[in-house]
Simulated assay, not measured.
Amino acid sequence: MKYIQVTFSFKTIEEYQQDLLIAELGDIGFNTFEEAEGGFLAFIDVNTYSEDQLKNVLKQFEGEFECSYVISEIEGKNWNEEWEKNFEPLIINDQCYVRATFHEAQPAYRYEIVIDPKMAFGTGHHQTTTMMMQYILETDVKDKEILDMGCGTAILAILAAKKGASKLIAIDYDEVCYQSSVENAALNGVENLEAICGGKEVIPSVEFDIILANINRNILLDQIPTYAKVLKDGGSIFFSGFYESPDLEMIKAACVPFGIEYINHKKNGEWVAAYFKKN
């Protein structure tokens, strides 16, 4: 398979700005990113790439940083080999140990998750995923039915399963994420997780006790009405993938018409995760 490689270079850019740019690129189909001197590399299937979409993304950041980019076509890489070079085990709240298949097991931790991310987002290393995992560790999920939207590797759903959730639906529009979710559920012996490829249109018409949505502000704002329909009264929803200002206030405002009340939020760097409850 052939890929488009886009090499981004910046005179100056803040880390949170680069993270936000990567998140927006992910929304238009870029699925692998590598650090490079002065910037980063982004990769996308040649059949998915649209220069108009790329220009529209960059237009959102006009005036925030100076950016140049070079486009080239390449043959597919051994993506697993690439991430294995830098993937290190992760410990969350001294309770959860996240590792790859080539790391040694650590049975001393209460929860151990084995993740083979391939090109899918969600090894737990990004601040948004870490905060969402912290919320899950702090929440009683036993016997709860849970929806994990924008699931990536399904790491959040898998952690909830290990904590006793009764049923889990993990949804992502990316085929690689879907396949990764299926494989990671099997790696962790999770049999009550159903992975679905798609967006809000494939959310089953059932009610959930908890919704996990680690995506980005714009998609969350679009999907909140759908979440409200499938969240049980008294149910909890955890959002991440956005910033404290102005994003959090926008999320709060979008939830008000549906009786979904803000409870609290976490912040890690510029990123935020927030807890809401449906009255």
Rank of each mutant, 00 (worst) to 15 (best):
N184D: 11
G164V: 05
V141A: 02
V176G: 09
T128M: 00
M132Y: 01
T139W: 02
A157M: 09
A120C: 12
A120D: 01
K162E: 07
T130H: 12
D143M: 08
E145S: 15
L168F: 04
Y173M: 14
L147M: 13
T153F: 08
L137E: 09
K142Y: 11
Q127K: 14
Q134E: 15
I146S: 00
E145V: 13
A185K: 12
T130E: 15
A185C: 14
A165K: 06
I171F: 09
G164Y: 08
A165N: 10
I171H: 04
V176N: 14
F121Y: 08
M119R: 07
A165M: 03
K144W: 10
T139H: 07
G152T: 06
M149A: 04
A165P: 06
C177Y: 06
S180W: 06
T153Y: 02
D172G: 13
G164A: 08
I136V: 08
V141G: 05
I158H: 00
A161E: 05
G124F: 02
A161I: 01
Y178W: 14
M131C: 04
K162V: 06
G152S: 07
Q134C: 04
A160R: 00
G124V: 00
T153D: 12
Q127P: 15
S180H: 08
E175V: 15
A165R: 00
K162W: 10
C177K: 04
C151L: 01
A165H: 01
Y173V: 12
K144V: 10
K162P: 10
Y173N: 15
I169T: 15
N184H: 07
K118G: 12
T129G: 02
A170V: 14
E138T: 09
G122R: 04
T123V: 11
C177T: 09
N184W: 13
S166Q: 12
Q127Y: 06
S180L: 11
M133W: 05
A186M: 13
K162R: 13
K118R: 09
T130K: 15
M119C: 04
E138R: 14
T153M: 05
K142I: 08
M133Q: 11
E183P: 02
C177H: 05
K163L: 15
K163E: 09
K162C: 10
M132I: 11
G152V: 00
M133T: 09
I146Q: 10
G150D: 04
K118A: 14
G150E: 05
Y135G: 00
I158N: 04
A186N: 14
D172I: 08
M132F: 04
V182Y: 06
S166R: 11
I169R: 12
I169L: 12
V182E: 08
V141M: 04
A154G: 10
M131W: 11
A186P: 03
A186Y: 07
M132P: 00
I146H: 00
A160L: 00
D174L: 09
D174N: 14
A120N: 06
A157N: 05
I146P: 03
Y135V: 01
G152H: 10
K142Q: 15
A165L: 01
M149G: 01
N184Q: 13
S180C: 15
T129M: 05
M149H: 01
A161T: 07
L137A: 09
V182S: 07
G152P: 06
C151E: 04
T130R: 10
K167V: 08
K144C: 09
